[in-house]
């Protein structure tokens, strides 16, 4: 197995992208998941649907609309231009924004499910023990929904590593900026460099397998722990 310099650059870029996207999604997705888990607002349905869209939408469709929105004539593009930031397509930060939308359900849904499963009772108990809303969140909600957060982190990261369609649409193929591992792989195949393609593919395959092993192993341990000592 061998990696070219281009492969290493692509791997490193992918790693940076996925880490950053996961971190930002955890920060932004947590309040969103909390709201979705607890609200009785009539907006819950529409917003849940928007969050879940990337699950069913072809990535190229998502990428196409993002390209329009972030382009110089799109609303986001106009905004970023007005702020003096230039336009986002074909930049690393454009990829970050697109990836966040693309991986959003993979982070929000596990956290939301864990929070819904928690129910009202632990929060009420904490309230009668004089814990303020913030205190309740950090001392009760976070520790009790940890498995949800772990699943969210792993799925969000892995899903971002594997994206392709969205990247091609709005990122193109710029080494070091937008040429992520899946694009690099595509280039190898286009160029009939099957050996290189194998190396990258096998790496991704192994990575995905290990990630899922960890998720399932962890969930199993949690279940056993909850059942108590035998």
């Amino acid at each position: 197995m061998s990696f070219s310099a281009g492969d290493i650059t692509a791997l490193w870029l992918t790693l940076r992208l996925a880490s950053l996207v996961t971190l930002l999604l955890l920060l932004l997705g947590t309040p969103l998941a909390w709201w979705l888990a607890r609200t009785r607002s009539r907006w819950k349905g529409p917003i849940s649907a928007v969050v879940a869209l990337p699950l069913v939408l072809p990535p190229t469709v998502l990428g196409f609309y993002l390209l329009l929105a972030m382009g110089p004539n799109g609303p986001v593009g106009q905004l970023t231009l007005a702020l003096g930031l230039g336009t986002l397509p074909f930049t690393f930060w454009g990829l970050v924004v697109a990836s966040m939308l693309y991986s959003l359900p993979f982070v929000v849904q596990p956290i939301q499910n864990a929070m819904e499963a928690l129910g009202e009772r632990p929060l009420e108990v904490a309230a009668t023990l004089r814990a303020s809303p913030w205190d309740r969140f950090f001392s009760v909600v976070l520790p009790l929904t940890r498995p949800g957060f772990l699943t969210a982190t792993i799925l969000g990261f892995a899903h971002t590593v594997g994206e392709f369609g969205v990247v091609l649409m709005i990122g193109g193929n710029i080494p070091g900026a937008t040429r992520v591992i899946s694009v690099q792989l595509y280039d190898h195949v286009e160029a009939l460099e099957y050996g290189q393609a194998h190396s990258l593919s096998a790496t991704l395959l192994l990575f995905s397998f290990v990630v899922l092993m960890v998720v399932y192993g962890f969930n199993r341990r949690q279940k056993l722990a909850r059942m108590g000592p035998l």
């Binding site: 632990p122 009420e124 309230a127 814990a131 205190d135 009790l144």
Partner: peptide, 16 residues
């Protein structure tokens, strides 16, 4: 509720 000086024992187990 968290500002009320009360103790509450729930019907079913409510330990964290």
């Amino acid at each position: 509720p968290h500002k009320r000086p009360l103790g509450y024992v729930f019907q079913e187990a409510s330990l964290f």
